[in-house]
Simulated scan of single mutants.
Amino acid sequence: MKFLSHFLLLSMLLLLCACQRGMDPVAFQADGRPPKLSDWHVVEVRSGKLVLNEGVVPYDLNTPLFTDYAHKLRTVWMPKGTAAKYDPTDTFDFPVGTVISKTFYYPRTADGKFTDVARTYDSSKDFAGEGLDLAHVHLIETRILVHRESGWAAIPYVWKDDQSDAMLARTGAVIPLTLVDDKSEREDFNYVVPDESQCASCHAQDWVSRKIHPIGPKARHLNRDYHYATGDENELAHLMKVGYLTGAPAPAEAPRNANWADEHAPLDARVRAYLDINCGHCHNPKGAANTTGLTLDVSVPEDRHLGICKPPVAAGRGTGDHLFDIVPGQPEDSILPYRMNSTDPGTMMPELGRSTVHREGVALIKAWIAAQSGGCVAIH
């Protein structure tokens, strides 16, 4: 049995290397906007699979950002001999030359109709090694974040219908799709690929400088296990081992956000992780929503900065005529879930990145508010 396990592991590694053998080395594009995703040689389609090039490391987040139920393959690559510097709170300090990719895709439905995509959290058929099996997934877009001498640049690419490559989409795109759940319930929606300026609006964590940075690669998001081709390993430990990260402590000593969908985790921890990744990049003291007085990153204490009994800064239809962001024990009277449950451009939050309502996310926030005790007093 032990010999068989070693044989299967060796076969998998040889298959992965065979896929990589035909790929040119990853190309750091120091300027410009290459017209095709394949110009980067980070991920490419080979023999019906989206494969990762040599040195391209996949990763995932404890709690990911919601994007219309899309699944995501995240990768990072750095020039040989360079590494990111660990930070316990903020995005790691990545060297110039770093290329981060995020591929958005959906599992295919049983009927195989091209515009039908599955609304599911099941990713068991998605992967081929560390890449994706195109027999089971429909690629939508891949976003590149590249760290150049002038700073980070965000470059969006949209996959062609034949799934052979993705093409530059500086002005974004609108892709009509239909979500189909396991009960065959259907929901038509427009998947919106953001343009470059919209990418920058979310990734500009400091709204004064407007310089963009990655959002996901923080210790608290990456402190989790990943199923690499060589086996399960903590992502922070793996990045240290392959030379892509320096200065990280042992995983047990690093911060860690909860998985929002883990029902065994405390409700408060799940909600704080969900708000942190979905809202915290704007709702923080330096972010685009810093004037709202609503701070939703994981560091803020549970007080009015988190929205408890806090009146909105600006009135309007975005409030739904509710008086407070969060009313303890009363989710139906709270602005936060009201805005999350909307797809009206003048009401919905987040303002970008989704065209559908994250039903399970709204239910989580409502359960959290319902579990809170106390009340709010309106001041006229």
Rank of each mutant, 00 (worst) to 15 (best):
M1V: 03
K2M: 07
S11P: 00
S11R: 14
M12D: 01
L15S: 12
L15H: 09
A18W: 14
C19Y: 10
V26R: 08
P35T: 06
K36A: 08
W40Q: 01
E44M: 03
V45M: 01
R46A: 01
V51A: 14
E54Y: 07
V56K: 12
V56S: 05
Y59F: 15
P64I: 02
T67Y: 00
Y69W: 12
K72I: 12
R74I: 00
V76A: 09
W77N: 05
M78E: 05
K80S: 15
T82W: 03
A83G: 00
D90S: 15
F92A: 06
K102A: 12
Y105W: 10
D111Q: 04
F114L: 13
D116Q: 09
R119F: 03
S123N: 11
K125G: 04
L132D: 02
L132V: 09
L134W: 02
H136M: 03
H138F: 02
L139Y: 05
I140Q: 07
H147Q: 09
S150W: 01
A154H: 09
Y157P: 02
Y157V: 07
W159N: 01
Q163R: 04
A166G: 03
M167H: 05
M167V: 15
L168S: 06
A169K: 09
G172V: 09
A173C: 08
A173D: 03
P176H: 00
T178M: 08
D181G: 00
E185K: 13
F189Y: 12
V193Q: 11
P194N: 01
D195I: 14
S197W: 03
Q198Y: 01
S201Y: 02
C202E: 05
A204H: 08
H213I: 07
H213R: 12
P214N: 10
P214I: 12
H221Y: 13
N223V: 13
D225C: 04
Y228L: 11
G231I: 14
D232A: 15
E235W: 12
E235Y: 08
L236F: 10
A237D: 11
H238M: 15
V242T: 04
G243P: 00
Y244I: 10
T246K: 09
P249N: 06
A250W: 07
E253W: 01
N257V: 04
A258D: 06
A261G: 04
P266D: 08
P266Q: 01
P266M: 04
D268G: 09
V271E: 11
H283R: 14
P285D: 09
G287Q: 10
N290A: 11
V298Q: 11
V300T: 14
V300I: 12
D303C: 08
L306S: 10
P311R: 13
V313W: 09
A314K: 14
A314R: 14
R317I: 15
G318E: 15
G320W: 14
G320F: 13
L323G: 00
D325W: 15
I326A: 06
V327A: 07
P331A: 13
S334M: 07
L336H: 04
M340R: 01
N341Y: 07
S342N: 06
D344Y: 08
G346K: 07
M348N: 06
L352H: 07
L352E: 05
G353S: 07
E360H: 03
L364W: 05
A367L: 06
I369Y: 09
A370L: 06
Q372F: 02
Q372A: 03
G375E: 04
